[in-house]
Amino acid sequence: MTDRERDSLRERVDRLPREVPPARDLWPDVARAIEASRRRARVYRAVAMASTLAAAAAIALFVGVAGRRTPGHLAVSPSVSTPAPTPVVAAPPPPLPEENAYQGAERLLDAELDERRASLKPAQAAVLDDNLRIVDRAIETTRAEVREHPEDPELRAELDRVWEDKLDLIRQATELYSEM
């Protein structure tokens, strides 16, 4: 390509319009996608907080066990790990059919945990209960979003994840106290 040809091409490129509007208004679709993204962000925040606190609670419970086994160790104070409970203003939405299996597993684990509750210090029981409440709120938040937007597979996957977090927390607490 000669310099003249290149200059000519350059001139034509410079004359191209800076803006070419789309044939239709894309905003409604963009707005819908943004709303879905916001929804997921809300759920992720609730789930992330629940997961973090559940993990912290498991550690706190473990340290509590170690503290009991080795006198002199500092037992975890519930005031460190537990945020103030949020008042419930509305009845939680009923569980979805696909939560049946999780609820069945939860009942079995709860029964096992209840048998061991007597060996928990009141402070440790408080840590566990407060954190279970936080995970429950995350389940309710996610469930409400799934009910409103059943077509969103990411929300359904998130509901599975937060249920698994809850079952893990109960399982860990049960296992720790069955060792005593």
Partner: peptide
């Protein structure tokens, strides 16, 4: 900004349909 973003997507993809999808995704 949609006109400028769409122009860019249209020129990069060479396909009006794909350009719309890319423009949408870019704003999200």
């Amino acid at each position: 900004n949609v006109g400028r973003v769409h122009a860019l997507c249209l020129r990069m993809t060479g396909n009006p349909r794909e350009a719309e999808a890319m423009t949408q995704e870019a704003f999200v």
